[in-house]
Design a protein around this nucleic acid. Structure first.
Length: 255
DNA sequence: TAACAGGAAGTAC
DNA sequence: GTACTTCCTGTT
């Protein structure tokens, strides 16, 4: 068991923020986190976290997963004090972080996310994993499934997209995306049927940690029209725009 | 109560 | 601009 003090980190906020869909809330308030081929049990009291793993595993796996090298307090400090909406959003979601999740898992997850909602996405991801022994199916496994089977999960028209993505990424190792800059990764992702600009941005942000990716979904669209009629100041926030997007999304979602 | 419309981290055509 | 699946919410 490893205990660490971590600032700007709230497990519940991260769980509710629509970036990870396989965390399992426990009755004690902790979470079981299946990720990176492992399972972690973690609990939090104030700013103190207990990780049920060895120090070696913590340093080699979970440090990066929770993006603990990034100072989120410094990002909050960068927010324009003359921007009341953004100031309120970062204060409200002060425990948010952008996890560094597996890119293939993000592809599958955000294909399922379109025109859906968080509880349903969780269920779809869980049911999909149940087909293949509890883990996210590999591209090859996914491509070998048939549309009728996938549709029994209630994923609707997204079943076809899952199959297409399985084929696409069976031929192109998704890990290669990690070597590409944001624009090129985005372009490759867009070549896969079912991945449009918004889903590609989510994959870039949550799976490749391209923090300049700024996914615009229905919530963000409403926020932009209500609070940023002249556009969001992306230039001012180069290097963290995607992170700020997450604060705004979460703030809007919880209202 | 049950039916119904509206909307949900969109994309393809 | 419209169709696409299913689910959940709020309204009548």
């Amino acid at each position: 068991m490893i205990t660490r003090e971590i600032s700007n980190c709230d497990l519940r906020q991260i769980y509710d923020s629509g970036q990870c869909f396989r965390w399992q809330p426990q009755t004690d308030g902790g979470f079981v986190i299946p990720a990176m081929g492992r399972r972690l049990y973690v609990t939090q009291r104030e700013n103190v976290f207990a990780f049920d793993c060895t120090q070696e595993e913590f340093e080699q796996v979970w440090w990066d997963y929770f993006d603990l090298s990034t100072d989120y307090g410094a990002i909050v400090q960068k927010v324009d004090p003359g921007d009341p909406y953004l100031t309120a959003a970062v204060q409200y979601g002060a425990g948010l972080r952008i996890l560094r999740q597996d890119v293939w898992e993000m592809i599958v997850t955000f294909l399922l996310s379109q025109n859906s909602n968080i509880p349903r996405i969780r269920k779809n991801v869980q049911d999909l994993c149940a087909l293949t022994g509890g883990e996210i199916p590999t591209p090859q496994q996914l491509a070998a499934l048939d549309e009728a089977t996938l549709r029994t999960l209630g994923v609707g028209y997204r079943a076809k997209y899952l199959l297409e993505a399985g084929k696409f990424f069976a031929a192109y190792d998704p890990q290669q995306l990690r070597n590409l800059p944001y624009e090129e990764a985005h372009r490759v992702l867009r070549d896969c049927p079912g991945i449009g600009p918004k889903v590609a941005d989510c994959i870039c942000l949550f799976g490749l940690h391209h923090v300049d990716a700024f996914p615009v979904d229905t919530h963000i669209r409403q926020i932009l029209s209500a609070h940023y009629p002249d556009g969001f100041p992306l230039e001012r926030y180069q290097g963290c725009a995607g992170i700020l997007q997450q604060y705004m999304f979460y703030y809007d979602l919880q209202k």
